[in-house]
Write a protein that binds this DNA or RNA. Structure first.
Length: 233
DNA sequence: GCCACCGGTGGC
DNA sequence: GCCACCGGTGGC
């Protein structure tokens, strides 16, 4: 019963091994008009900051240790739960920020950035919470209403409730509009420019809209986060 | 009011 | 002792 998510999903072509969506809507491409690219407000001149991008199965950045730490990863709640960024959904950026002053200078804080909206999170916990609820935690244990992100009705995205305040006017973030039951049967991917992450999905002869592609990315992110084990093999 | 940063605590 | 997380504060 609790497997409703994985159980309801028919085999999705997007989930086939080797096929994943690279969310090109993030900061890597400056195509996005207004993305705030991490303002280096600290005194150090760009030193001590490394940014990486989470990928599902890319190269060798995942699992740096040659050992086989397949299982026995996370069972408790905190701490050594994530040795690497394996838990990070594709497209998310990780930023290691080194403290430059104070008693804890030299300490490293990790920040996570959501690919579509650029929202910032301070911990893995916050990221997971966001992926589950589609919103940031705020106010604590107060008014916990609506968790209709992808839990119940996928196609009923009629209610476009305004979350948070009104940080971003136009871009519709969490409300996912992806028909899990009727995914496109065939999608062709065309590379716009060689050497760049600009792949354009095409169904038939029609170019898929960027917003749609973004929804795919969101759907993929959600699923991979919910069923990471399914991706193992 | 919002955001970024630092301090301090709790769990391994 | 180390590491990750979260609270709170100061600055903009």
């Amino acid at each position: 019963m609790s497997d409703s998510v994985s159980g309801d999903f028919p085999p999705d072509p997007l989930l086939a091994s080797g096929a994943f969506i690279s969310s090109a809507g993030d900061g890597t491409l400056d195509s996005s008009s207004k993305r705030r690219p991490i303002q280096g407000g600290i005194g150090v001149s760009g030193s001590g900051e490394s940014v990486r991008i989470g990928m599902a199965n890319g190269t060798d950045q995942v699992n740096p240790s040659p050992d086989s730490s397949s299982h026995q990863a996370e069972s408790k709640s905190r701490k050594r739960a994530a040795p690497g960024d394996n838990w990070l959904p594709p497209g998310w950026r990780v930023e290691d920020k080194i403290r430059t002053s104070g008693a804890t200078a030299g300490s490293v804080d990790k920040y996570y950035y959501e690919p579509n909206t650029g929202r910032k999170f301070r911990s893995r916990t916050e990221v997971l919470y966001y992926l589950e609820h589609g919103t940031s935690k705020r106010g604590g244990t107060k008014k916990v209403e609506n968790t209709d992100f992808l839990s119940d009705h996928f196609e009923g995205q009629g209610s476009n409730r305004a979350r948070r305040k009104a940080k971003e006017p136009p871009p519709p973030p969490p409300p996912l509009d992806f028909d899990f039951k009727n995914p496109p049967e065939k999608v062709s991917w065309s590379m716009a420019k060689a050497g760049e992450e600009a792949w354009i999905p095409i169904i038939g002869d029609v170019k898929v809209q960027d917003s749609v592609r973004r929804d795919w990315s969101t759907a993929f992110t959600f699923i991979t986060n919910r069923n990471p084990s399914k991706l193992s093999s």
